[in-house]
């Protein structure tokens, strides 16, 4: 008997898991493409209707919701943070993995410790006061800067670089007379690109979804997309089609990234887990 061949129970379980995972998203589509009367009907409708386009246009044109601005802001914030975090982490990961310097292990332990502290919730009061004194509240800078600190990124890139760039390669380049930065550019970067992709996708998704800090430091006038949905939800609480069209719009970029990079996301998660 083979332990790795699926039983009927396994097949049913996988089927249920797939259906449950997809259902709320399907439901979002159903309500977003219907009318408000349908959305509160009992029994509820189970198939998508034909109003998706109209509802999306309504959300985008809604002056109060500032939805388009929210989407744009989220895109800016997520992209800037992603690019910066990937560069910072790749540089530090290279130093930790391939270079020797005094205090290296101590600093690496410090990185690990920062990963274990929920800084976002812990430090929220001083961070907010800092943003107030810099007069940055309500601006995207206030959302971007705290998130450039990403211990997980440094940890991931250190692990990845260790495995992808053998020390001999770095030493050979060194003997060749290459300076450290040149080694990083010519030897390390090409080798760690898959790790950078995993970190980048991860960071982008986390930023896109971030909620608590933007809710504190931004205003509904200059929202990220999550704040825009929250405003919609608060102001039009019974207008389900409007809110659902908004939520559907907000996850389209994520679903697109997911479909494009699904293999890397699954692979990256699994690799990261085993190494951690």
């Amino acid at each position: 008997m083979n332990n790795f061949s699926p039983t009927l129970f396994t097949r049913v379980m996988l089927g249920v898991a797939v259906v449950l995972s997809a259902f709320p998203l399907y439901w979002m589509l159903v309500i977003a493409s219907r009318t408000n009367a349908d959305a509160i009907a009992v029994p509820p409708p189970f198939l998508p209707g034909g109003n998706l386009g109209d509802n999306i246009v309504e959300v985008l044109n809604n002056e109060d919701a500032k939805f388009l601005l929210g989407l744009t802001n989220s895109f800016i914030v997520s992209s800037v943070v992603t690019v910066s975090v990937v560069i910072i982490s790749t540089l530090a990961g290279f130093a930790f993995a391939n270079l020797s310097f005094k205090g290296r292990n101590l600093l690496l332990v410090l990185v690990l410790l920062t990963m274990a502290v929920p800084l976002q919730q812990m430090g929220v009061v001083p961070l907010y006061r800092l943003m107030v004194s810099l007069e940055w509240t309500g601006t995207l800078k206030a959302v971007i800067l705290p998130y450039l600190l990403n211990g997980f990124g440094v940890f991931l890139m250190t692990q990845y670089t260790r495995q992808a760039v053998p020390m001999e390669l770095v030493e050979a380049a060194r003997v060749d007379g290459a300076a450290t930065l040149r080694i990083w550019w010519n030897v390390v970067l090409p080798a760690v690109r898959p790790g950078m992709a995993v970190l980048g996708i991860n960071t982008f998704m986390l930023m896109w979804n971030d909620f608590m800090w933007p809710l504190i430091v931004l205003t509904p006038d200059n929202p990220t997309v999550q704040i825009a949905i929250t405003s919609l939800n608060a102001r039009f609480s019974t207008n389900y089609t409007l809110i659902f069209a908004g939520t559907a719009l907000s996850i389209i970029p994520l679903i697109a990234v997911f479909i494009a990079f699904g293999r890397q996301i699954v692979g990256g998660l699994m690799e990261g887990a085993v190494k951690a």
């Binding site: 709320p24 998704m205 699954v266």
Partner: peptide, 19 residues
């Protein structure tokens, strides 16, 4: 199948909570 069980993770928390 692996991707679809990860689908919830990439969906935004606020959107899910609304649904």
């Amino acid at each position: 199948i692996r991707m679809s069980v990860l689908l919830p993770l990439v969906t935004s928390v606020v959107a899910v909570a609304v649904v």
